[in-house]
Every structure is written in C-alpha cells, then in structure tokens.
Amino acid sequence: MSTPLLEVKDLTMHFPIRSRGLIPRTVGHVPAVDGVSFSIGAGEALGLVGESGSGKSTTGRLITRLHEPTSGQIIFDGQDIAGWTPRQLKPLRRDIQMIFQDPYTSLNPRHTVGEIIGAPLEIHKLVPKQGRLRRVQELLEIVGLNPEHYNRYPHEFSGGQRQRIGIARALTMQPRLLVADEPVSALDVSIQAQIINLMKDLQKEFNIAFLFIAHDLAIVRHFCPQIAVMYKGKIVENAPREELYTNPQHGYTRSLLSAVPDMRQAVVGGRRERIRYTGKEEVVTTTER
C-alpha cells in the first residue's frame, strides 16, 4: 500500500481550564482530542461522526492547523506538520483547505464574491492580477454559479449558493485535502443533496481527499467509504461503511445508529429498538408502533 496523504498519529489537544480571579492560572485540562489516529489516502473520503463535544470539529481544526496540538503527529504528504510555525505552514495552506458549516457567517459580508474567492490567489501570488478574474469566473462555473455574478455580495445569494461560494473559495488553491465541517447541516433539505453531489463530483474530478465531519449518519454513509466514530475525544470505531452500518462493534456506534429516524421503516411500523449508551453499558428500549 502506498503512503497515505494524511496520517494522524496519537493526536491530542488539551484545552486549559483557567481559574477565575485577577491572575488566572491553569487549574486543569479538558482533553478535547485524546490520542486520535487515522489516515486518509489521496482522493479518498473519511467520515468523522460523533455527538457535539466529542472532539470531531477540534480534530478538523487541528489538521488545518487552526489549533495547536498538545502532542501527536499530523503527517501530511510525508511531513509532520504538527509543530510547524505559521511561516512554515503558509505554503501548506494551499494543500489543505476547509469548508465551514455556516455559509452565513463564514463569508465576509463586505467583500464581493470575486474578492472572497480571489483572496487566496492574491495571498499566494499564484496568478498574475490580470488572470485573477478569469480564474474566479472559472471557479464560479465549476461550483454551478453564474460566472457573471463575481461582483455581487454574499447577501445576494441563498444559503445553498453561499455554500457553493465557500466551496469555490476552498478550491481556489487546488487543495489535495478538504476538511468539511458539517458542510450541509445548515442548509435546507432540498439543497443538501445538491451540495453533496457537487462535492462528490469535485472529489472525482480533482482527486481531492475529504475529511467529512458530520452528525447526519445517512449523509456520511453516502459520502464516505470509511467512517470513524468519535466519543469523548477518542475514536472508538473506524471501519468501512458497510461494516460499520451492518455490524457496529462499539456500544456508542450502536446507539447512534439506533437513533437515526428512518422514514421508510416508520411508515411500515413494527418494533423499534433504541439503544442508549451510558459510557459503560447499553440500555435497550423497545417500542411497538
């Protein structure tokens, strides 16, 4: 097997707890991410699921190096970037980009779409000024927006269109890894499928690897052949999707799967099993409907 594009080894991030008072001291640590290891090959997609507070978003932010890890390795393309300085990281930021959850707060309302998408080109000075507009229009076209709309502001677009803008911005640098943190959960149902299909097309076309962070198990299953389940800062299960969904090994995974509302099953009726995971054991409740 060839070396993976991204390999995370024993990654740990502790948030300090500060005491109150005039001189705050660190009185303890919250292990938000606690010894997490996984790998993603070029052009592949890994799903990361878990409840809020499980550390899945923090993991994503560590890989994009928006957070400083406490310990562990983040090996991207053969280099451990965990301890890199911002200056060292700058060229790497082309390769790893992020798509954010909320398309309303993640786009600067005072910048035109062209400025938003073109900013990375300016920062990395990759395309001469005259070529920027062409590249922006090209990107707008790729994500299914009208290339003539580069002069408009984010508020002129709907939620789904804004998420397309966020994706175009992430694509500007032709990244090799995209960290998508709940990319569709803020969107309307009828739009979610559009964005998922778009990301899948882009993945194929540009051979982009995805770390797909989400809590919607059906959407993760659709997008990611491999899925890792996080619980309280740890990865408790990491398996190919067929295996994870048909034969979950960990109690928390089983409780997650039992909680997904199933439209088709609910209409037919029958027995419904719910599993609650307490951290130690599984509590099963069954209802007839």
Binding site: Q192, A193, A218, H222, L257, M263, R264
Partner: peptide, 9 residues
C-alpha cells in the same frame, strides 16, 4: 433527496 441508511451509495 434524503438518503437513508439503506440507499445505494
């Protein structure tokens, strides 16, 4: 438009 846990991936 909504996938479920048994739809074709």
């Amino acid at each position: 438009s909504v996938p479920d846990l048994s739809s074709d991936v």
